[in-house]
């Protein structure tokens, strides 16, 4: 099964190379083994031999990776390489997709993420998520932020909720912009503000990990810069995994970078190493812009 898909992967790859006219030699052995340092001593999230299937087709092959405490790990790679799929495994958002199956060991602070007994509700409160497109609820800004605390029963008194709203919005760097219009709909904000609102919404339930799935892909450069700054500030309190399309962004915000290729984790290293001296030729080919 696994080899067959690999063959298929190779075929697509060579076809793509022919199309672009650039020759990239890929051997099966090279793709299979992750190079660099995928493991960490202070692992918050541990993933071992993760395989993800959509029905019959396999999207993730044998990925093993640690994400350390208070660290920003960036996941990069060409589109369709499985980085978003992998990210969505970490808080089990893949459960919502019909026919999606996840195998392997995944744990948060040593507690398993998958398993019959694991309740996704508290898990997702611990592992928050920010999505590609800003998705504020069609409610007021205030209601957006208190949504999580309210459903989880973290706070119910108005004063407590007010405090949570202010704290979360401050941390998301949005407080000064919206403090006078908390009762206006969240959908009325600009794209960048909406995304920061979504980050505030995620912070409001005091998560330990924040997953970000290309959080800036729908934003303009100025809004992007603002979010990148924010990510750097958030690192103090949270562990962050970010999927990004932009190598510059990965280089700016992350401590470690993981390079995915066709469902395989090719290389994990310090961000600086990956961008200046990649170990794997596929990584090199990608960061030097030979495909992407």
């Amino acid at each position: 099964m696994s080899t067959m898909t690999l063959d298929a992967a190779e075929r697509t790859e060579s076809a793509r190379s022919e199309l672009t006219g650039k020759k990239v030699a890929v051997s099966q052995a090279e793709v299979r083994k992750t190079v660099g340092q995928p493991f960490s001593d202070t692992a918050k999230l541990r993933m071992r031999d993760v395989n993800v299937f959509y029905g019959e087709s396999q999207a993730i092959h044998n990925v093993s990776l640690d994400i350390g405490r208070n660290e920003v790990v960036a996941m990069i790679g060409p589109s369709g390489c499985g980085k978003s799929t992998f990210l969505r495994c970490l808080n089990r958002m893949n459960d919502t997709i019909e026919g999606c199956r996840v195998e392997g060991e995944l744990s948060l602070d040593g507690e398993p993420i998958y398993g019959a007994k694991v309740d996704v509700v508290p898990l997702r409160a611990r592992v928050g998520m920010v999505f590609q497109k800003p998705n504020p609820f069609p409610k007021t800004i205030y209601e957006n932020v208190v949504y999580g605390p309210k459903i989880h029963g973290i706070a119910s008194r108005r004063a407590d909720l007010d405090e949570i709203v202010e704290n979360s919005l401050r941390r998301a760097g949005l407080w000064n912009e919206v403090k006078d219009r908390l009762d206006k709909p969240g959908t009325g904000l600009s794209g960048g503000q909406q995304q920061r609102l979504c980050i505030a919404r995620a912070i409001a339930v005091s998560p330990e990990v924040i997953l970000m799935d290309e959080p800036c892909s729908a934003l303009d450069p100025i809004a992007t810069a603002r979010i990148e700054e924010l990510i750097d500030e958030l690192r103090e309190n949270y562990t962050i995994a970010i999927v990004t399309h932009s190598m510059q962004q990965a280089a700016r915000v992350s401590q470690r970078t993981a390079y995915f290729h066709l469902g395989h984790l090719v290389e994990v290293n310090d961000t600086e190493t990956v961008f200046t001296n990649p170990e794997h030729e596929l990584t090199e080919a990608y960061i030097t812009g030979r495909f992407g």
Partner: peptide, 20 residues
């Protein structure tokens, strides 16, 4: 995306439906 947002915050399915 709205459902994803609610579920990502740890809502149960019925909370997602009823509140979002």
């Amino acid at each position: 995306s709205l459902r994803d947002g609610a579920l990502g915050l740890g809502s149960t399915q019925s909370e997602t439906v009823r509140k979002v």
